[in-house]
Write a protein that binds this DNA or RNA. Structure first.
Lengths: 204, 204
DNA sequence: CACCAACATGACCAGCCGGTCAATTTATGT
DNA sequence: ACATAAATTGACCGGCTGGTCATGTTGGTG
């Protein structure tokens, strides 16, 4: 059982890191995070053996939250709007969080805990996609992996103008969703990514 | 008139910087670039007053090349495939060049020369889009600015798996193109970005 | 050839980073 | 109240970065 102050500091650190990462992206300094949490820099390394470890912990939280959203939507919402709300949630997460953008993309997929969280997200996405496909509200050649990769696209596209037009990402999310409709479908030139693709990409 | 060796070194530097930027992205060190060009670090700053200046010079080259491609396509190709080839060229540029990805997005739009190059690219994109719209091969509510912003999306989406599946970006480019078709069109919730949006985003 | 300005050079600077650790403070069980 | 393990602290380290500058070299010119 950890000491009381240690537990409190750990939670303060996670909050601070989450906030700083969301505001300044992946390259915030440990010092900033420590300062925001109101602790010394050394304390950070008492709780997380390296910066990567700290960042991974937060990524896992966020990936898990989004996966949970997806799982809930799958049960309680019709397939069409479930998928739409899932993608909206994913995009929204990134609007408020610059680092999450890099998290889905991330190299840190090498980290085992992050991999696990990514896998859970991938399963949720696949379930939602399968349901939508079966209902005929999404084109037949799109997979859960596609959806995961597309999650951050709208936010990324609108990022250069985010300061001037904070809701612009919605435009591009809808554009992408229109591309996912069955009536828009034209044969795609390249096959969807597979589990192996993700696996080999992680080990590089 | 510059001295002969100065001109040669300048060109060597631009080649080296271009190569290093494409391989390692925006955060390559000046030392690396200098080493690759076979000159001392100080020489870099003889030719470019800061790193930003060097990077901007290369961005301008690339933006200019893509704009030129667009202008040629406008004259010599039918509207549908002109737009498609334009976007393919834009995506391809980023597959081979990690930094260009960040260039279109770039904060360095603040730099006047980069702004000029971006504007030329925007005009080419708008001309191509107008032509395609008029021919009815693209939905009515899409603009040149949309196209510019969408240029890098496919590459970005496929980036996490680029090592395992180097041609995956084509899948997502086609998916986006399908979303641009008139038959896919559903009302978009947010208006297209305007010139002012780009202007205010640049001054931030 | 000689001469000078243009240019190349690399040691050097301040500042930042992630990470370490001996010394110190503090929470907790008795 | 005390003892002790647990946790905090901040000075410190090596390494890297963009950028500077006195010194040395070289190309062009008359």
């Amino acid at each position: 059982m950890p000491r009381a102050d240690a537990a409190r500091n750990r939670s303060l650190l996670i909050d601070a890191a989450s906030a700083e990462l969301s505001e300044h992206g992946l390259d915030v300094s440990i010092s900033r995070i420590a300062a925001r949490a109101g602790v010394a820099k050394g304390t950070v390394f008492n709780h997380f053996s390296s910066k990567e470890e700290l960042v991974s912990a937060i990524f896992c939280e966020q990936l898990g939250a989004l996966a949970a959203t997806g799982e809930t939507l799958l049960e309680h919402t019709d397939p069409r709007s479930a998928l739409q709300q899932f993608m909206t949630a994913g995009a929204e997460l990134q609007v408020n969080d610059r680092s999450f953008c890099e998290a889905v993309t991330a190299t840190s997929r090498a980290h085992p805990a992050v991999r696990a969280a990514s896998d859970r997200l991938a399963q949720a996405a696949e379930a939602l996609t399968a349901s939508a496909r079966q209902a005929g509200v999404v084109r037949a050649d799109v997979t859960g992996h596609d959806i995961v990769l597309l999650l951050g696209a709208a936010t990324w596209i609108a990022a250069p103008l985010a300061a001037a037009r904070s809701d612009l990402w919605r435009r591009y999310l809808h554009l992408i969703l229109d591309g996912l409709r069955p009536e828009a479908a034209h044969e795609l030139p390249v096959a969807a990514p597979t589990n192996e693709d993700f696996a080999t990409a992680a080990t590089r």
